[in-house]
């Protein structure tokens, strides 16, 4: 049995740390883990994708199309861009807030994210829309976006990691001064 989780977003949103936290939780359960990250030029505002896979045996770090149990999307258009990775009946956790690329701003395009959420609503077996703006406001920091999305994913049951296990990973992997903030975000999102 292999669980495959695809994280996608825009460079700078914190997908790499999120994939590390999932990996740490899975390692803690004694599972073999593979991940693949986007590092380099694309990190400057480009599309980024992290693949996280764990189980008793994992051949490739890259998830095949139609192979993801869950997609955790930090941005609505990125969820749509990567939807072909989702397994039939898989779960999508998506952050409601769109990131408008400068190319859209320059070209006067009207991209707002709403049309992407509509598309996801129609074409996803199970869609969880996270209002991360509210969580970030509640916690007083935009930096908790990644942990909050993970909490939604954990609560959905599709990630194969529980909210408690996620909390433990945060305590083990995140610097102590950020513990309270991140735990607060998890508890808020997991409510």
């Amino acid at each position: 049995m292999v669980t495959s989780c695809l994280l996608c977003g825009v460079g700078g949103q914190g997908t790499v740390l999120a994939s590390k936290l999932i990996a740490a939780s899975a390692m803690e359960k004694g599972l073999f883990v593979r991940t693949a990250e986007t590092i380099g030029m694309a990190q400057r505002g480009g599309c980024v994708v992290s693949h996280v896979r764990f189980g008793d045996k994992v051949s490739s770090s890259m998830i095949p199309e139609g192979g993801a149990d869950i997609i955790i999307a930090f941005e609505p258009a990125e969820a749509v861009r990567n939807l072909h990775y989702l397994k039939k009946g898989g779960t999508v956790v998506v952050n409601k807030k769109a990131v408008i690329p400068i190319t859209a701003a320059l070209g006067g395009s009207s991209y707002s994210g709403d049309e992407m959420l509509d598309y996801l609503e129609k074409n996803t077996g199970r869609l969880i829309v996270a209002d991360s703006d509210r969580i970030c406001d509640e916690c007083g920091s935009p930096k908790v976006l990644n942990v909050a999305l993970l909490a939604y994913a954990a609560r959905s049951g599709a990630l194969g990691i529980t909210v408690e296990e996620l909390k433990n990973a945060v305590l083990a992997r995140v610097p102590e001064k950020f513990h309270q903030l991140n735990i607060k975000a998890i508890e808020f999102a997991a409510k």
């Binding site: 505002g45 861009r81 039939k88 690329p101 992407m116 598309y119």
Partner: peptide
């Protein structure tokens, strides 16, 4: 593979200076 309907036009995101 599951055939997804054509998606709305996706925003392009070339890497940019921060």
């Amino acid at each position: 593979a599951e055939n997804l309907p054509v998606s709305p036009t996706l925003p392009v995101r070339p890497p940019v200076l921060c």
